[in-house]
């Protein structure tokens, strides 16, 4: 199937557009921008659009990938400007290009977590860092896929690296590269596990942002 890609940003109010709604939004945006794209075959053909690694509701991202097929008559270079004029506030296309590597080679996602915690952020960082730095730390994660309703996740095996920065009176920033897929780890699941393990450091609020997508070697994936 089609292998053209968009790299786009999702931020601000657009963070609350769900994955399915975002797919529909892009379908309509292509029509509004009058950019013809490839359709699926079958009884009810519809525009083929696929967004790699669905983003959780409320997260922002600087590095979303959308796969589609550009039809003849439009160049990759003109797509971002035309599409951006047709997209809602907070969804912004950075580049459009022919995809080279399959998305299954996408291995890590670098996240930034802005953690609000007044007073004892240094202690929180120490406690969380200790757990994340272990050889093994198994937690139960709710799952709809299995009958028991929960699967066991060994969190440190899904963490590539992490650093705490900006440790202040009101909180800290955690940059962490987590496994992207097969299996992936959602940072909010990780924060829930950390909170359960150290309830004395329950964050007041956490804001999540995807900074970059990386391949197996930690190089930027496009």
């Amino acid at each position: 199937m089609p292998k053209d890609r968009l790299l786009f940003v999702k931020e601000g109010r657009a963070r609350y557009i769900s994955h399915l709604d975002l797919m529909r939004t892009f379908q309509r945006a292509f029509l509004r921008a009058d950019i013809p794209i490839k359709h699926t075959e079958g009884f009810h053909p519809h525009p083929f659009i696929s967004i790699a690694l669905p983003l959780s509701l409320g997260f922002s991202s600087r590095c979303e990938l959308l796969e589609f097929g550009l039809l003849e008559g439009t160049t990759h270079e003109e797509v971002p400007a035309r599409l951006n004029a047709a997209l809602p506030e907070g969804v912004r296309v950075l580049t459009c290009y022919p995809g080279q590597r399959p998305t299954r080679e996408l291995q890590w996602v670098l996240y930034e977590l802005r953690v609000d915690r007044a007073g004892d952020a240094p202690e929180l960082c120490r406690a969380w860092g200790e757990l994340l730095g272990r050889e093994s730390w198994k937690v139960e994660k709710p799952s709809k896929k299995v009958k028991t309703g929960a699967v066991t996740v060994d969190i440190p095996t899904l963490v590539k690296e992490f650093t705490f920065t900006d440790i202040t009176e009101t909180g800290c920033v955690l940059q962490i590269a987590l496994s992207a897929q097969n299996p992936g780890l959602n940072p909010s699941v990780m924060v829930n596990a950390l909170t359960e393990a150290c309830p004395q450091f329950t964050p007041e609020f956490v804001q999540y942002e995807r900074l970059e997508i990386l391949d197996r070697d930690g190089k930027i994936f496009r």
């Binding site: 601000g12 109010r13 657009a14 609350y16 557009i17 769900s18 709604d21 939004t25 309509r28 945006a29 509004r32 509701l57 409320g58 047709a86 997209l87 809602p88 506030e89 907070g90 609020f205 804001q207």
Partner: peptide, 27 residues
């Protein structure tokens, strides 16, 4: 969007109903 609002939106169903910012919304 205020931080207060950002804090409550993850707690409610279908938060996109409460954000505005749609295509052709008039600002």
């Amino acid at each position: 969007m205020t931080k207060e609002l950002e804090k409550i939106l993850p707690l409610v169903q279908k938060p996109a109903r409460y954000t505005g910012g749609e295509y052709r919304a008039v600002v």
